[in-house]
Design a protein around this nucleic acid. Structure first.
Length: 777
RNA sequence: GCUCCCGUGGCGGAAUUGGUAUACGCGCAUGUCUUAGGAACAUGUCUCGCAAGAGGUAGAGGUUCGAGUCCUCUCGGGAGCACCA
């Protein structure tokens, strides 16, 4: 008998699939469409590791099954290749980033093919292709034209190591999401996109999509909508005792608890609040105030969060009137109040708020514990606040999409005309980031100096580039019109294709993108829908369903990382055990959505399973194993078909495989006794196995790639569990569908039950048809 | 601090609506084939007990004929958010 040799058969079938275009999706078809999407990777120099492969294999199984079920499946792949690591690597090696990108994507593609993944490679996209980013820039122009992109001066998060500005979403615990460096605050003029205008829709429309609950929760939490009131506090007297009546004399606070207004005994402003500067002339302790404000500005966000004790300074000479009690109360600045949230000012209610209480205790301020709340729920002006910030969209680096804007002294910021897109990245010799926070493109005078599209006077190009999240905002639309590698003529406005394919039926990606790419791309899709680029009937949500996989950890449950040297390369696993073994093992290792440690010993189980199938399938072609059919095995096959069909859709790949293992164990036992399966049934089993181990099944000769239909098994006899007082005592085979009286009669006659019950009185008998009988004594 | 998730053998983990706890795999043990090896094959593998039986899903209570599953509390682990007013 031949030995299972995956290395040989896998190469053969991969060559066959990828040259024949087996996985091509049709842009029009009578079949049902099914758009299955995976987050496209950033092609790093390190290549794929086994953690990347987990979602690829999982979704590949779904794609292959749906094709067998007769659907027109679009399962595309591409590369999101702009970004810092490539730029840094290119700088180090003295290469052009585009050269590095090509090399890395080629390697990623090779590795994916090595796993037998059924991507439609004819639709591959790459975000760094000028034909692609032409449309990324086009979207930016639309945002600008609709007033959703503007250049603003603001305090941004600045990573001193990467020398780049960061969006709020890219700061994790006060540190740069990418490199972990402590983030600084920097005053900069930046392009900002008004995602906050979509905050409510981004929350509300979650009701209409099928996302895992943890994903919805995280997005809702991030957007952080809270309803409350804005309340005006008037400044009562200046330091000279004269009334102040100009606009500066009002302090607006935001509160979610207007009903606690009677308990408000002081106000607190964020130290950076503009009113502090405006009230300078009235403040008697200005020196002290100035010092505190300076201290706050120098503090990092993390240091501000970590400090345990509350600090602050009273604005002496300033008092405000509590609009409910009409009493004069003092005003403080303190760094526990943030400028970025609400109005940057709060009414402190020490009786109801822990933080205010701490502050009151420290500075000896009155705490009123007993006051009227009822009837004041609507005090002030109703207002909604969000934690979500607008999206800082400028990056001071080379390897990104140029922002297609021109600055003219006369006409100010002017959009590059659409016909002039793409604004291509110029080839530069030096593209190191600068300490001044200026983009490396700024030094390219030839490129920077241009003409104003409006007045034709001299003008300068924007030299900042877009963040690495820009290209992934619309890539699911790019796949629709992509036709072949490097030659795609993308068109974003293609209502026929968009109508046919969108929305994406099922989208899987990492949890780490929930408040980044996933949120951003939902926002951009809604915008494209609003301006009519996406047909109305498609709806304003790009993804119908979103799932997330768990990451794979190294052995001993530590993170797999280059620095720990515990990264497992799928190429090596495939070389040693075969790609099918790797596929089966990664799916069997544990629940798909759960974090799981890699176990190099466990792989052999998957390999043994496939070897067993290989030899059983070959044996089953021998006449001796055909002569006798084992009906129990046929029943089990049908149950297995049902289980595997359901489990794949629920992403319970681990239990699907365990069901197939049980079946194979029974099959092997049956074959030992020379009773086996019909040719047709062997084909059925190979069919349900094929999404998991496609090479092996192809080698064993699956005749028709059709997903088998489960045949309901009508069992004549069932196993009835017998309990006494809820404890398992016995089981017996009885005819199916017998009633309680019949069951009782049979059970009572059993010697075992007779002795156990003895002479004790039977109080009650619980009967669950075809399942269980419980005697209560 | 708030929100969510999770605690089952030596290990990864199974267990429709509450109904035989530990499926499946790894590891381990014994044996077989083999010059040898194991990524081969066979059998066994929660605890106590010779057995009958008893106990057992982090701990303590509760609901129920019956609880890994539902409720309450405690302990432990993980994730997300965070002076968010």
């Amino acid at each position: 008998m031949q030995k299972y040799n995956p290395q040989k058969i896998e190469k053969k079938w991969q060559k066959n699939w990828y040259s024949s275009g087996d996985f091509k999706a049709l842009n029009n078809s009578k079949k049902d469409k099914f758009y299955l999407l995976l987050e496209f990777p950033y092609p790093s120099g390190a290549g794929l590791h086994v953690g990347h492969c987990r979602p690829y294999i999982g979704l590949d199984i779904i794609a292959r099954k749906r094709r067998m079920q007769g659907q027109n499946v679009l399962f595309p792949m591409g590369f999101d290749a702009f970004g810092l690591p490539t730029e840094n690597y290119a700088i180090k090696m003295g290469l052009q980033p585009s050269v590095v990108t090509k090399k890395n994507s080629d390697n990623f593609r090779r590795q994916m093919k090595n796993l037998g993944l059924s991507f439609d490679w004819s639709r591959e996209v790459n975000t760094t292709d000028p034909k692609y980013y032409k449309w990324t820039q086009w979207i930016f122009l639309q945002l600008f034209k609709h007033g959703l992109a503007s250049k603003e001066s603001l305090m941004i998060n600045w990573c001193p190591k990467d020398k780049i500005g960061l969006a709020n979403e890219e700061v994790v615990n006060g540190k740069c999401e990418r490199c972990g460096t402590l983030v600084e605050k920097k005053d900069k003029v930046q392009w900002v996109i008004k995602i906050t205008k979509y905050a409510d829709r981004l929350i509300n429309d979650l009701a209409n999509v099928d996302y895992q609950q943890r994903i919805k929760d995280q997005q809702i939490n991030w957007i952080g909508r809270s309803e409350g009131s804005e309340i005006e506090f008037r400044i009562s007297l200046d330091s000279q005792g004269a009334p102040v009546n100009d606009f500066k004399s009002i302090i607006n606070v935001f509160t979610t608890r207007p009903d606690t207004i009677f308990g408000c005994t002081f106000l607190v402003l964020a130290p950076e609040h503009e009113l502090v500067e405006n009230l300078k002339s009235k403040i008697t302790n200005w020196g002290e105030i100035e010092k505190y404000v300076k201290q706050t500005r120098n503090k990092s966000d993390l240091a501000r969060q970590e400090q345990k004790e509350k600090t602050g300074v009273e604005l002496k000479g300033i008092k405000v009137i509590n609009p409910a009690t009409k009493k004069e109360i003092p005003v403080f600045i303190a760094d526990y109040v943030m400028l970025g949230y609400g109005t940057g000012a709060i009414m402190a209610v020490p009786s109801d708020d822990k933080r205010d209480e701490e502050f009151s205790v420290k500075y000896n301020l009155p705490i009123i514990k007993d006051y009227q709340k009822a009837g004041f729920e609507d005090f002030g002006k109703k207002m909604v606040n969000y934690k979500l910030r607008d999206w800082v969209f400028s990056r001071q680096h080379y390897w990104g999409e140029p922002i297609p804007m021109v600055y003219c002294e006369k006409c100010k910021w002017v959009a590059v005309p659409e016909k002039d897109l793409p604004v291509e990245l110029p080839k530069v010799k030096k593209y190191e980031p600068t300490d001044t926070g200026e983009s490396p493109l700024a030094k390219m005078e030839k490129w920077v100096n241009t003409k104003c599209p409006i007045c034709k006077g001299s003008a300068k190009r924007e030299t900042d580039t877009m963040p690495n999240w820009a290209g992934s905002n619309w890539y699911y639309l790019a796949y629709l019109s992509a036709n072949s590698r490097g030659n795609s003529k993308f068109k974003i406005q293609n209502s026929k294709l968009v109508n046919y394919w969108m929305p994406v039926d099922w989208y899987n990606g990492g949890m780490e993108h929930t408040t980044l790419h996933l949120l951003y791309s939902r926002f951009i899709f809604k915008f494209l829908w609003d301006i009519g680029v996406v047909p109305k009937e498609v709806g304003s949500e790009p993804y119908k369903k979103r799932t997330s996989h768990g990451i794979i950890l190294g052995e001993g449950s530590v993170k797999m990382s280059k620095s720990l040297g515990n990264v497992i390369n799928p190429d090596e696993v495939a070389k040693q055990f075969g790609a099918d073994t790797l596929r089966v093992y990664e799916m069997f290792i544990g629940p798909f959505e759960q974090m799981i440690p890699w176990d190099s010993k466990g792989i052999v189980g998957a390999r043994r399973f496939l070897e067993k199938i290989y030899s059983l399938a070959l044996k089953s072609q021998l006449p001796i194993y055909r002569s006798q059919i084992n009906p129990n095995l046929v029943n089990l096959l049908n149950k297995t078909i049902k289980k595997v069909s359901e489990d794949i859709e629920a992403m319970k790949f681990n239990t699907a495989i365990s069901a197939m293992m049980m079946f194979v164990n029974e099959w092997a036992a049956s074959a030992q006794a020379s009773a086996s399966l019909s040719k047709k049934d062997v084909q059925k089993f190979l069919a349900i196995l094929s999404p998991f181990a496609p090479h092996l099944v192809a080698e064993l000769g699956l005749k028709q790639e059709i997903w088998p239909i489960y045949e309901e098994v009508k069992e004549a006899k069932v196993i009835l569990v017998v309990q006494i007082n809820g404890k398992f005592r016995d089981k017996m085979e009885v005819l199916a569908n017998i009633d309680q009286a019949q069951a009782e009669a049979i059970v009572i006659q059993s010697d075992r039950i007779k002795t156990l019950v003895g002479k004790t009185e039977i109080k009650k008998i619980i009967f669950v048809p075809n399942k269980l009988i419980n005697i209560v004594i």
